[in-house]
Design a protein around this nucleic acid. Structure first.
Lengths: 197, 197
DNA sequence: CGCGACGTTGATTTGCCTCAACGATTGTGG
DNA sequence: CCACAATCGTTGAGGCAAATCAACGTCGCG
């Protein structure tokens, strides 16, 4: 894993799902662009079309929605080897409704919608990759719906903490609260309570 | 639409996303099986692997999860032209954790995991179709997560009622309550309140 | 150093749940 | 075809988990 991390890139991720020839790899590399973002910088904003899928090489980002009452709701975190975007905006190429913000100085790779679509048409291996990834993401999202329906705030926090300990350490607590659907105050009280037991 | 409904089938759904030759269609028809299920019958149960994706030709089904406290949580409804399954069990081919139950006498079409996978490998058009469908499903599921995080019980009910009026009329109210994450009693009180305004 | 961002703590409120009882409808066996 | 039991929705009283509001401590950074 340490050896792999030095070469962390979308391509590595793809190779976990499909075998690529050198030609395939070249095909793909042509559509990837790498860049840096500073902490607090936005890479997606409401009213702008989310043109890219973003892969995190190094750093941490989150996507969130701001409700009518002004409170924000974290949709997703992304640390190394995760994707993030306004997925609905991306697949429909309509204006975004959410923010994607860097929580740390980060290095990202991006691929553009039209390039991805045309690559998938030309080369079924990538079609396959994106199918498998989307299916996994859907199954994951369904589990999250269930978690909110079935579990108390305390149980959700426990689940999240044990599932993503590395995220808990890196991001502000109010972002976690807004991911789990509780107030920062209540999250604070839960942590205190859970420490004393 | 009425004309199309007479031939409602998975194949019709696929053709909305990709163009199929007659040979493609034959390929696909070979892996589809049609059957009937009676009201209250289960087509997926915990501890059994969910081998199929199920498409609703006629009727209504729902999938739900039973929590530790015995209350059930509706994950999804499916009426005509919708898919339903334990999707996580399906894509991983591991034991299911949820029920899928017919709410009415229904006619369904089913396709088996291994057949779908091998068809996708042979024919990229189907790979493409299932990619697009999974992406849409994922985007949809994310919206639902947001809805639960951002909206009150009353707002969720309003949203659901205006989005799926046909479902509201067909299924028991307690299933809707469990979909929206509230008790049947509270849903009943909300309806009364919303009627008087 | 001073300010803004973040976390904590306590008092109070509230949205929704629980529990219990009661109609209305449906379906089923005698 | 009626009787009786399920199943489903409604209503009300009381309770609790989590939200709101407000005040205060602390740390990092410009």
């Amino acid at each position: 894993m340490p050896a792999q991390e030095e070469f962390l890139s979308i391509l590595n991720n793809i190779k976990k799902y499909v075998d690529l020839t050198e030609v395939d790899e070249k095909d793909f590399i042509d559509i990837v662009s790498t860049s840096k973002v500073k902490k607090r910088q936005f890479i997606v904003q409401p009213r702008f079309v989310c043109k890219h899928q973003t892969y995190v090489v190094k750093g941490a980002l989150r996507s969130y929605f701001v409700g009518n009452d002004g409170t924000d709701h974290t949709i997703q975190f992304a640390i190394e080897d995760w994707f993030i975007s306004d997925f609905n905006s991306y697949i429909t190429q309509t204006p975004a409704t959410i923010f994607v913000e860097a929580l740390e100085d980060s290095v990202i790779q991006q691929i553009e919608y039209k390039d991805v679509e045309s690559l998938c048409e030309r080369n079924p291996k990538f079609e396959r990759y994106f199918r498998l990834v989307a299916q996994k993401a859907f199954a994951y999202s369904q589990r999250r719906v269930l978690s909110k329906l079935d579990k108390t705030a305390e149980q959700r926090l426990e689940e999240f903490t044990s599932m993503y300990p590395s995220i808990v350490q890196r991001v502000p607590q109010y972002t976690i609260a807004s991911y789990l659907g509780m107030t920062p105050e209540f999250l604070s009280k839960l942590r205190k309570k859970m420490a004393n037991s």
